[in-house]
Design a protein around this nucleic acid. Sequence first.
DNA 1: TTGACATATTCTTATATCGGAATATATTAA
DNA 2: TTAATATATTCCGATATAAGAATATGTCAA
Lengths: 107, 107
Amino acid sequence: MARASTTSDPFNAIAEPRRRHILEFIGGDERSVTDIADALELGQPSVSKHLQVLRDVGLVSVRRDGRKTMYRINPETLRTIHDWSGMFARHWRGQLRRIKAHAEEER
Amino acid sequence: MARASTTSDPFNAIAEPRRRHILEFIGGDERSVTDIADALELGQPSVSKHLQVLRDVGLVSVRRDGRKTMYRINPETLRTIHDWSGMFARHWRGQLRRIKAHAEEER
DNA sequence: TTGACATATTCTTATATCGGAATATATTAA
DNA sequence: TTAATATATTCCGATATAAGAATATGTCAA
């Protein structure tokens, strides 16, 4: 059997380096397909397809603006990845410090 | 061209759900191949292969113990993923709160 | 309406992967 | 040494991708 479909979850979606670059480029802004293709020196069809994948897993949201299609990051979905990798945080920080930090965050 | 090799970086490695499950199961402990295969109900060869991928990208470290091969998580590598996804943190928390938290962490 | 611009989709080709079976390689115990 | 245990590796078939070219679709401007 082959690997799970790339469109099925955010972890698969960010496995592709160009898709991470696209997310990095978009950052906190709103960008069109052409903006991205120009900046990252990728073909337009390629960018469109990557954006479609990112959209399918909820990593970006879309807004039509005339002829342009503007993409924006959906932070909530990225947070799931951050949270997952954060589960291991206590193994790289001291346990005590972690608990303390958590307690402070609750306040 | 096909996607980049799965063994090339941690992002690719954790794209596979079973590999995430393996990491979750190992957690802060040290586990043998059989431990993992039994717990996650996977075939031994399958587990060995997944562990090899995780090892190639530095997500786990190995220690031979008699007939057993014990695996342990390498938190540093997981941290790179946490840090990457954390770059977008300021988009889901308020910018100010982020800066404040960061400043506090410096102390 | 027609032309130009912006994006999406389809098709093809080359590769990457996964799981499972079978087999090979260690390492300990008798 | 030989058997048993624990892992790793190889080979296979089925599927998933990714890029690029060509084409389709959508939208505005004249």
